[in-house]
Amino acid sequence: METNHDWNAKLYDRKLAFVSGYGESLLDALRPRPGETVLDVGCGTGDLAKRIADAGAAVVGLDASPAMIEEARRKYPGLDFRVARAEAFALERQADAVFSNAALHWVTDAAGAAACMFAAAKPGGRLVAEFGGRGNVGAIVEAVETVLQDRFGIDAAARNPWYFPSVGEYASLLEDAGWEVSYAELYDRPTPLDGEDGLLAWLTAFAAPFFAGLSDADAARAKADVQDALAPRLFDEKNRVWTADYRRLRVAARKPSA
């Protein structure tokens, strides 16, 4: 998981495990094979890297967060995990495939990431990735921006840490880096969060840059106001569960053989 803020890896695994869970279907698109090398960009705490290794591939997991890599190494000590940014890394040997789940929307230098991933792939190597696309968590972002402006006079839009591209925008960016794009789809994926405090955990883990500089008390009040604003749209009173308004962009591409 690429990021511009420090991660609480324990909270991530305890309350936000759905991130890796939804990545299971992306592994079906990757189809890792025994004997090949797969680069996992934004590997988080390593759960999907472990699944790739279980398929017989050698996996290298990269993440910008030292806390995430520390937890990944603790959980899966036999795998290769490294602290590195998606837009600024190099491998000693090229990989057969590059994989990334729920990470690239944290990388604002998207062109740099596309170029690094291209350089890391062997000729003929493949890329399979999924991350937030145009309109992702639009209701949540709108509520955060309104609350921070009204309560604190903060321009939250200037603090937005995410890159949510359209299909055309990202496909063109990959092609500019040299990739041949074979598939790109933007789709709605409403995502249930864990428990009645699921939105609070989500805001704490993923939206921290918006609340930077606020006291703990002010941040707590702001998050409570965000929850109040979103409850009519995103909270199921009967089942006592929040559903985040996710939109995902899934892409597949290949590096030309020659």
Rank of each mutant, 00 (worst) to 15 (best):
M1W: 00
E2P: 00
N8F: 11
V19Q: 10
S20P: 00
S25M: 02
L27T: 15
L27S: 13
D28Q: 14
A29T: 07
T37K: 07
T37W: 02
V38D: 03
V41I: 12
G42A: 04
C43Y: 05
K50T: 15
A53C: 06
Y76H: 10
A90V: 13
A95G: 04
D96S: 14
A97K: 08
V98L: 12
S100V: 13
S100D: 04
S100A: 14
A102N: 13
W106G: 10
A110F: 09
G112V: 10
A113S: 09
M117H: 12
A119C: 06
P123M: 13
E130A: 04
N136G: 02
E142A: 11
V144H: 01
I154W: 01
A158V: 11
G168S: 15
E169S: 13
A171W: 01
A177W: 11
G178C: 06
G178N: 10
Y183G: 02
D188K: 12
D188I: 09
R189D: 08
P190G: 09
P192E: 06
L193W: 10
L193S: 07
L193V: 14
D194A: 15
D194H: 12
G195D: 09
F210D: 00
F210W: 03
A212K: 11
G213C: 07
D216M: 12
A229G: 05
L230K: 01
P232K: 13
L234G: 00
K238T: 15
W242C: 01
A244P: 00
D245V: 13
R247G: 11
R248Y: 10
A253D: 07
